[in-house]
Design a protein around this nucleic acid. Structure first.
Lengths: 147, 147
DNA sequence: TATTGTTATACTCTATAACTATA
DNA sequence: TATAGTTATAGAGTATAACAATA
């Protein structure tokens, strides 16, 4: 657990995080630029990434996930539906509910966007294969969920 | 340089980045929540972090840095000035120019915000002191700018 | 009566264009 | 004439409240 690491260890953690944070910010900027060139706003990007191909999300669940109002989800989905990127469908058993699915076009655009978002930063090429292996081991230990 | 790493190395890079990316997103959410509790919008947060204590930024330079219109800077600075978090001052030699500086209150709030933003994620406690040392060495090699 | 999603409406954030004052 | 910042105004994005359909 390495608890109570002392000042030196704490400083290490802070340095590591601050460095990574700068890297993330720079990458994030570049993702937004790439999206803009595909006529995708930051909001669209977030939505298209959240909607996994083949999965049907209830409107209400999306609002909860994004901690936004239900009317905002209506608005965002309308936007994307107008561009034929998503489709609204009726829920099978509860007729109050509507679910959202990516259209074929939406899946293609999402794939293109993820190529940017998940493309590793250039600076990762600074590390050798062995170093990457080490880094991977360490990073895996940082992720609570299924890696 | 480790160029032309092959599939395995490329896969490693992608895995590392995807894991770090998820971590970052989770942290970012939590930063925004902490800021909201201090009545600080995402825009305010960005501004307060950008304005370093003791430094005087020209309005025009801020617009360029954020790639936004000059009128947007006027708007954001007005917001913060109303809350006495920043002050506008005249430029010493060019009377067309105005500069923005953090007020005492602004500096205090900024410090409080940065405590959240730069606080290392909990999961970093999963690593031993030796592992952190290794990670630090690797991460430093990823940052082009002055670490 | 409670819940899902939409509509009507208002507020926030950002941009464009016209304006003021300096240079 | 050009530049720094503001104001007037319009548009995108988000929220609140009232509503219709269904449970």
């Amino acid at each position: 657990m390495a608890e109570r690491g002392g000042n030196r260890t704490e400083r290490l953690r802070a340095d590591i995080w601050q460095a990574l944070y700068g890297l993330f910010m720079a990458e994030h900027e570049s993702h937004l630029e790439a999206a803009a060139e595909l006529d995708v706003t930051p909001g669209d990007l977030k939505t298209l990434i959240a909607l996994e191909p083949g999965r049907a999300d209830r409107m209400r669940d999306l609002a909860e996930k994004w901690r936004c109002d239900a009317s905002t989800v209506t608005w965002v989905v309308n936007r994307l539906e107008t561009r034929n990127l998503v489709e609204r469908r009726a829920h099978e058993s509860d007729r109050r509910v509507k679910v959202v699915v990516l259209s074929e076009r939406g899946v293609k655009l999402r794939t293109k966007l993820l190529e940017h978002v998940y493309r590793p930063p250039e600076v990762l090429a600074n590390l050798s294969a062995a170093e990457l292996q080490t880094l991977h081991e360490l990073v895996k230990r940082l992720c609570p969920g299924p890696a």
